[in-house]
């Protein structure tokens, strides 16, 4: 299989929080239409790298990004690039479901409205909820608060909300970690269904999840620096079967087989 074109590509990306280096020298390509999983021990910078892709790190005053990230071959951090516009092209789903304290309908309509959607809002809401496999459960209570849903439903609402603005890429930071196994499976199915139309990057601590849903997997690790702090780096990035069955690195094998120190 030939390598598809990269939507996002990172070249020697390092991220600092204040003066401390959190992740160093990450280079990877996110191919269009594929699902990429980020795995690795806690604190190795998976979320940090993920948040560089939609410039959420701009909102953290102390964060500083070095290196280059291109989005459709344009410099994501270039001087003319509007971070707000980027975020409507590259959506994000968070670890904890965070629906707005508004009605289910408004949760979805909000993003569309601020992005200047001119079409039929009812259709968009229904379409997005169907996409997120939530429509049947909420179609009779679209006016109820989004907070009145269960955790799994809330997370699907957040996915619907991200889908509604029709982004090109969806970044998901441990979207199932606050959910029960059944909700988790539903969301995994959903992710697989969304692939093809969307490019998805998903951070997960769940090895099975990474191997079940992703086409490619990036394994991050952290090492102690001389100063005593930890700095994350990309160990290996390859097709998911290779990462799980014949990884090139010893550390990757140890991690995916659960023998990690």
């Amino acid at each position: 299989m030939q390598s598809p074109t990269a939507v996002l590509s990172a070249r020697s990306v390092s991220v600092y929080y204040g003066s401390s280096l959190a992740v160093r020298q990450v280079s990877l390509d996110i191919p269009r239409g594929e699902i990429v999983a980020f795995i690795g021990p806690s604190g190795c910078g998976k979320s940090t790298i993920l948040r560089c892709f939609n410039r959420m790190n701009d909102l953290v005053a102390s964060a500083r990004v070095e290196g280059q990230i291109t989005y459709n071959d344009r410099d994501l951090y270039g001087p003319k690039v509007d971070a707000v516009a980027i975020r409507s092209r590259i959506g994000m789903v968070f670890q904890r479901p965070n629906p707005f304290p508004k009605s289910i309908y408004e949760n979805i309509a909000f993003g569309a409205r601020i992005n200047g959607y001119r079409g039929n809002m009812d259709e968009l809401v229904e379409g997005s909820l169907r996409r997120a496999a939530l429509w049947d459960e909420v179609k009779d209570k679209l006016r109820d608060s989004g907070l009145a849903l269960s955790g799994g439903q809330q997370q699907r609402l957040c996915i619907a909300r991200a889908v509604a603005i029709q982004p090109e890429v969806i970044l998901m930071d441990e979207p199932c970690s606050a959910l029960d196994p059944i909700s988790t499976l539903r969301i995994e199915e959903l992710i697989k269904e969304l692939s093809g139309d969307y490019t998805i990057v998903i951070v997960t601590h769940n090895m099975q999840q990474a191997s079940r849903v992703s086409d490619r997997t990036a394994f991050f690790n952290a090492e102690a620096t001389d100063a005593g702090s930890k700095v994350g780096y990309l160990v290996e990035y390859d097709r998911t079967e290779r990462i799980f069955h014949e990884p090139a690195q010893e550390a990757t094998r140890d991690y995916v087989t659960g023998r990690f120190g």
Partner: peptide, 24 residues
Amino acid sequence: SLRDGSYALGATKRETIVSVVLPA
């Protein structure tokens, strides 16, 4: 997390404050 959710949808700071933070 609510503010982040709003920013992640491409909302500006003003939109986030007016439509998400103040109602909340």
